[in-house]
Design a protein around this nucleic acid. Structure first.
Lengths: 209, 209
DNA sequence: TTAAATTAATCAATCGTTTGATTAATTTTG
DNA sequence: CAAAATTAATCAAACGATTGATTAATTTAA
């Protein structure tokens, strides 16, 4: 009995994250999550209070470490704008392609047009990532590194939108790209490097003077 | 009582489309749809057989007319590749920004990683739009109009992904862009022209030799 | 009058949650 | 230390509410 309760809670969140991504928040039942996690149904409420509590707990676990890396890039004084952009893309793409369950879950819930407490929270989380990217672009334009006529707001839509398309609609993107984007091996050996190269090239073409 | 049953069916589908977009397929109940449509709950089953029948009926209504326009552009012999690309973007952006409920619905369901009958159908529908776009790009590369080193597959992810980001996550994109993207007036006067200009410029920068 | 349209009532199934009881682990007490 | 008291973890069972669907009765329209 070495493992503490934190491990069990983490295990539940692992499973819940996957099931939520597979079936959506409403489509995933507490019975299914507890069943696949191999724990009693009541444990979900015991640990996390409610179904929504489980959902929010998945958040807390992810977001804490996620943004510090990106932030450190944005604040690094030793890099110029192009280098920051490169680093940002490298880190971001590595992160989101691997932890795709979480981001699929995130995007599906935020795509509900009716606002609620959950969508507000998700909005806040996502906007932080956006803000870091926007600052890099804005700084680059200000310094004259990037084309000043660039639409930096729609550029946000392009970088995050392209990522979402590949990661969040794997049935589609696998057909488009030519291999299974959900396969871990394909992700590391094929998708990530290709995606990075493409994205840098695209942004360079658009942003350069 | 001038209106025929087709109008009533259409009215139900209008409401259902909105509610599905607001709350997701699982989150939207038949009672809510029938309630907001002002009809008895049993009418949904009477007309469409089941909840899934309603969902599929929304499809049938949209997809029939949607792709013929785009196809006619792709097959037009009088335009060169750049012109086709322009026309395609114009038509596509006009369409998807206005009928956003349908596309939000579509994307949320296809983002479920677990396959089912519905995701297969949606995949087929979406791949048709992709195919038309890919053909235009492929033809342009073949003719030498576009840069032959372009990653035409990831370019698909960019155009459709950028669109999805703006249309499907309005809470985010409204904050990023600076005005409410769900407002019809903003869509016509601000968003559409700006989006078209941006997209053409982006593709031009990336695709030109 | 007859078929189609519409209704209220009802169905079994499933939802998220709560309960009371039981076991395991920990702390307190004598 | 050992017994008692307390806390934490886990369970099966059941809760009321809601789900999608169906029935049978009624109204409308041709």
């Amino acid at each position: 009995m070495e493992k503490e309760k934190t491990d069990k809670k983490d295990h539940i969140l692992d499973v819940a994250e996957r099931v939520f991504a597979e079936l959506g928040y409403d489509g995933a039942s507490t019975r299914m999550i507890s069943g696949e996690a191999g724990v009693n149904m009541a444990m979900l409420n015991y640990y996390f209070g409610s179904k929504e509590g489980v959902f929010l707990a998945i958040f807390d676990r992810r977001i804490t470490t996620f943004q510090t890396v990106l932030l450190s890039i944005g604040n690094d004084e030793t890099m110029n704008s192009w280098e920051k952009l490169d680093k940002y893309l490298d880190s971001y793409i590595d992160k989101v392609v691997t932890n795709n369950c979480f981001h699929i879950m995130l995007n599906r819930e935020i795509s509900k047009s009716k606002k609620n407490e959950l969508t507000d929270q998700i909005t806040d989380i996502m906007m932080k990532n956006v803000k870091i990217f926007q600052d890099i672009i804005a700084e680059g334009i200000k310094k004259g590194d990037f084309n000043k006529d660039a639409d930096q707001q729609l550029l946000v839509a392009t970088i995050f939108g392209t990522k979402n398309y590949i990661v969040n609609t794997p049935h589609i993107s696998s057909k488009v790209i030519g291999y299974d984007v959900l396969d871990a091996d394909n992700q590391d050996k094929l998708l990530k490097p290709r995606f990075k190269t493409y994205m840098k090239k695209l942004l360079k073409a658009y942003l350069q003077n």
